[in-house]
């Protein structure tokens, strides 16, 4: 869960930029990364974004954990591409009497996909690292995502950590009482855990609604109010996008 709970340093320069500018910039960069056909742009985006992540004070371990799954996917995709795509042999290895051939075209395609994944994952991580959650949701709301959707995300975010604590306590209690000693018992315990969490969610939703109604809740969550765009931030972002657009062309 600590992978999840990184809070950006509020004093850094990047944290003070309007979340809408950061969101639009990230989305534009993401579009360029996934639509490009070269290595230069994704790798440049990765370097810039990782720099932003570290400037926000994120720990290396947290970042490494966030990259674990994409790296595993890269590994699988490169293997699939290397051995199953292409015609020009790159290398050949004999193992257990079998000849395994890697192909040049597959290797290149695999590496291109790998670069795109690293670039895109870095961009999204940078956005999440340098933007407070409420600011990010306000920016999504400004982008005309339905208010109900934003409300549900805010509720989920607000109660995620509480439900996680409950889940951890129940899981630890089950584990201490040999609730996961074999597969069959583990399945039963996991079902009980899921059911208990659902019951807690139902009961909490009633309590939360009552408490919120007393404070004037009418079905809509209040959002952060945006200040007008600052010309300098927009101009710098556009310049960056233009320069990265040139790399996209290469």
């Amino acid at each position: 869960m600590h992978t999840f709970s990184h809070t950006p340093h509020s004093g850094t320069f990047l944290a003070t930029i309007d979340p809408r500018v950061k969101l639009l910039f990230s989305l534009a960069l993401l579009l360029m990364v996934i639509s490009g056909s070269g290595f230069l742009l994704p790798l440049t985006a990765a370097v810039l974004s990782l720099g932003c992540c570290f400037s926000s004070g994120i720990r290396l371990k947290t970042l490494a954990l966030r990259f674990a799954e994409p790296l595993f996917i890269i590994f699988m995709v490169v293997l699939l591409k290397l051995f199953f795509t292409g015609h020009s042999p790159l290398f050949s290895v004999s193992t257990f009497g079998l000849e395994v051939t890697g192909y040049r075209e597959g290797w290149q395609e695999g590496l291109l996909i790998a670069a795109r994944i690293i670039g895109a994952v870095s961009v999204v991580n940078a956005l999440a690292c340098v933007t407070p959650f409420t600011g990010l949701m306000a920016a999504f709301s400004w982008l005309r995502l339905p208010q109900t959707f934003i409300d549900i995300v805010l509720f989920a975010w607000r109660y995620l950590f509480l439900i996680h604590d409950d889940a951890r306590v129940i899981y630890a209690a089950q584990k201490n009482r040999l609730g996961y000693c074999d597969y069959r018992t583990g399945l039963r315990s996991f079902g009980t855990l899921a059911g208990t969490l659902v019951i807690k969610a139902f009961d909490s939703s009633r309590t939360i609604t009552t408490a919120m109604e007393q404070r004037g809740y009418d079905g809509n969550m209040p959002m952060l109010k945006h200040k007008p765009f600052r010309i300098r931030e927009v101009a710098v972002s556009l310049t960056f996008i233009f320069c990265l657009g040139l790399l996209w062309k290469i």
Binding site: T148, D151, I152, V153, L154, F155, A156, W157, R158, Y159, L160, I163, H164, A167, A194, L197, V198, A201, F202, S204, S205, R206, I208, T209, M212, G219
Partner: peptide
């Protein structure tokens, strides 16, 4: 209470 319920269910699914 349906909106908080769906939010909480999203948190449960996430967890």
């Amino acid at each position: 209470s349906f909106k908080p319920l769906v939010g909480l269910m999203a948190a449960v699914v996430f967890i």
